[in-house]
Nucleic acid binder design. Structure first.
Lengths: 244, 244
DNA sequence: ATAAAAAACGAACGTTCGTGCTATTATTTT
DNA sequence: AAAATAATAGCACGAACGTTCGTTTTTTAT
């Protein structure tokens, strides 16, 4: 009796696709803990109460499974980190939302073992092959999303002149550091400390006209600008890559 | 059977110890590329032209091999990153040397796959066990060395009041980010960019009386203070941990 | 030089790995 | 409801895994 994810009302999805998805959901979490190379078909089959061969048939090779896993992780990452940030107005609110959401997705264990892509990045940073390529592509996209947000903040007059790419890189480095402190050292305050550090870096470069980022409860929210609507913008050019 | 006692300097080294060391030297590099879990006894035996069982006998279990590998990596790390920095005078010169040496040891591939401990950190950040514990201990020590250097720089009047631990954390986060950009994205400028970023962070907090850190050729050197000698200080309290 | 000790080997163990097959169910489509 | 198709199970394979054991070779101490 194999498991498959619940079918959504209205939407007719083939059984195979449903099973495939539940497999990948398990795969993503397992990989975030044990690594993509530590993903073994036998273990997954056990965890899903299905046969090795039955599971295997969905992918045809381990590498295909790994690639599919990276893709699924990307989807989850977009859903939890990027998409919600795009509902915020371009500029400082969106930039801050991206940082917040990233830290939060580690804190709330969207992936069992912390950020999937952080683990995958350092696991594959010295290996050739398509899996690495897929991870690299995802990370380049993430960096692009982040640095575009920085650029938008500059254009909106929220940030003083900065090298957007460089600043995005700096912010993300701090985030990775937070992951390291939180996940490896077990530093409970690592995430919130880095939240403040990033905030400090942003504040140091923000203009007087920048919408304030202030505490509200135990959370920090960035006050929205009144101008733009509260919807994900599909402004103009085609959006390829991470968000699709 | 007890482990052989440390031999006096100049004394002949038992064959076993020599072999053990060459095994570990291979192990460290292999692990920096394939991960500590990817270390397989068969592969290592092949690479060293010896038998699996002969190699295995040196450690008794894979976990022991991993622990020994972490220890060897620690020794190499100390030799390339920490020890040379301790020859510089406490304060800004030493702090900067630590940063420089870390970035350099990635650039010059002291470990084949980049920084051993960066890889190990993210590989084991979600796994229990003694291997993880050993990595954590090493990283705590590294952070302690770094933040002590920051503190010394403050005491020497080179840096304005800072939370040493926090600042050390920030600096190391940037370093990890550099590793990520260099190793995963193949960004040739990642290391030198972050070198400048760290420099910027340090400069922003340094006092007027701080010895300047200036370019000399394509390299940056921190001008030494005239006061202290150019030797590794064993100042006072026992030094336990990383450097031993 | 010879005996004791240490180190390295070779073969094999039981397991698990990824991956093929061929049946046999379940699900869709007609 | 029957036929066609898709999904899963069962079984087996060769290779590689970590590990054990008895033997042989090399090093060390007498």
């Amino acid at each position: 009796m194999p498991v498959s994810s619940p079918v959504k009302p209205g939407e007719r999805v083939a059984k195979g696709a449903r099973t495939r998805e539940s497999i990948l959901r398990v795969a993503v979490n397992l990989a975030s803990v044990e690594g993509l190379e530590g993903l073994t078909i036998g273990r997954m089959a056990d965890e899903l109460n299905m046969s090795k061969s039955g599971l295997f048939a969905h992918f045809g090779s381990k590498e295909e499974l790994q690639l599919a896993t990276v893709d699924m992780a990307r989807k989850i990452f977009v859903e939890h980190v990027i998409r919600p940030a795009l509902t915020r107005p371009a500029g400082m609110p969106r930039l801050w939302a991206l940082c917040e959401n990233w830290l939060e997705h580690v804190e709330t264990r969207v992936f069992e073992g912390g950020c999937f892509f952080t683990a995958a990045s350092f696991e594959f940073d010295s290996r050739p092959g398509p899996v690495r390529a897929s991870i690299v592509a995802a990370m380049r996209e993430w960096l692009r999303v982040l640095s575009r947000a920085v650029d938008e903040a500059r254009k909106a007059g929220h940030l003083n002149a900065v090298n957007a790419q460089q600043f995005a890189f700096e912010v993300y480095s701090l985030a990775i550091g937070a992951h390291w402190g939180h996940q490896l050292l077990g530093d409970k305050k690592a995430l919130s400390n880095v939240r403040l550090t990033i905030l400090g870096r942003i504040r140091a470069l923000s203009t007087p006209g920048c919408p304030s980022i202030k505490k509200s409860g135990s959370d920090m929210k960035c006050r929205e600008l009144p101008s733009k609507a509260n919807l994900p913008d599909r402004e103009g050019s085609s959006r390829r890559g991470l968000v699709r």
